[in-house]
Design a protein around this nucleic acid. Structure first.
Lengths: 190, 190
DNA sequence: CTAGCTTTAGCATCAGGTACTAATAACAGA
DNA sequence: TCTGTTATTAGTACCTGATGCTAAAGCTAG
């Protein structure tokens, strides 16, 4: 039956690991995996300051909810602060840590692009599909915390095609520019 | 004291709303806010099929964990299936419901862009910052469920500048193309 | 062999319930 | 007004996954 017991220290380390990996595990299950009594597990948790199952689940639930809320907000890709439909618009995006390349702290291009695209689509007053873009330029690297101010102008419309320019500034400095060609749908497209 | 009771139906509707908003509320707290006994709350939950507090917390915790995991995976923006550093690479992205414009079911351009950008950066063997892009074209609209296959080729290098072309196909049809100009950093940049 | 740490056992208690029974209150229809 | 139905409340036994406490072993090193 070799009730293969482990030294206390080792068991407690393993305990921490297991609970971190699966916070949904009960003391009973733990006692079975370690071949010790439930009381021992409880003592271990006490010593290690690990809360009971229900508290663990509770905190997982609320922490994850926080994370999801912040991601939801991020999905907006910039807040539109001014909008004259069919003419122009302004959008502001506060960049955060999780938009950057870890190694360089530089904001990933697609966030900047996404802000510009969203704004360009917002100024067009119709169901639209983005079909062509040209002349994008990133002028300077953008770092977490920078506030991106994007201005869009509708330059020309031809039938169901819209030519929209977007300029994005960081601290008054131009950081990005893009010319978007948007095609409304609903009508035939080609 | 006007124990202001509410009609049953109304109370149950309000109950659903409250619990949806705050799944962490106990029957006792609910009974206080509605000025009814705990038993009434329990009966209501039974009729409405609402599980007990602990179950609610449990499901919030695990559902949100699932969502977070899928978002994590999404952050990769395409799976790189082939890569010859400094030369070429292939990335596959399965599009999903939450990448599209609700109204049109068409995949938002920045996901396609992000896949291409990520791939372009991956094929360059260095710390890179994206600084210039040109000649992007979206050829056809892409719908949720479409599988995007992006191929990148390094066309030219000049000093710390890399010219990378990315072609993305959906069902053998070209859907996107982009020429990226990447600049490695670490060295001086200008 | 004994002092000290570690482990186990047992029991009372708690929160937040389920499941069930039974009594009472409220109200609508004849 | 009485009556039948629905709604509400009360109360009990039981459940899970714990806490908190006391006490008894088990092991181990000096």
């Amino acid at each position: 039956m070799a009730r293969n017991t482990m030294p206390k220290k080792e068991r407690q380390q393993a305990l921490v690991d297991i609970i971190n990996k699966d916070p949904f595990i009960t003391d009973e299950e733990l006692s079975e995996t370690f071949n010790v009594s439930i009381q021992t597990i409880r003592l271990d948790r006490l010593e290690l300051g690990i809360p009971e199952l229900r508290e663990r689940i509770r905190s997982v639930a609320s922490e994850n909810q926080k994370k999801l809320r912040s991601l939801d907000a991020k999905e907006v890709i910039g807040e539109i602060v001014d909008l004259e439909l069919g003419v122009s618009g302004i959008s502001i995006l506060e960049t955060t840590e999780d938009m950057v390349f870890e190694r360089t702290q530089i904001v990933r291009g697609h966030y900047i692009f996404a802000q510009a695209e969203s704004l360009a689509i917002a100024v067009i007053d119709a169901k639209v599909a983005l079909t062509g873009v040209a002349n994008i330029k990133y002028k300077t690297p953008i770092f977490a915390g920078d506030k991106l101010v994007a201005k869009a102008k509708v330059m020309r419309t031809r039938g169901n095609k819209y030519f929209v320019w977007v300029f994005t500034k960081v601290r008054q400095q131009e950081a990005f520019r893009g010319k978007f060609i948007l095609v409304t749908i609903g009508e035939d497209r080609r």
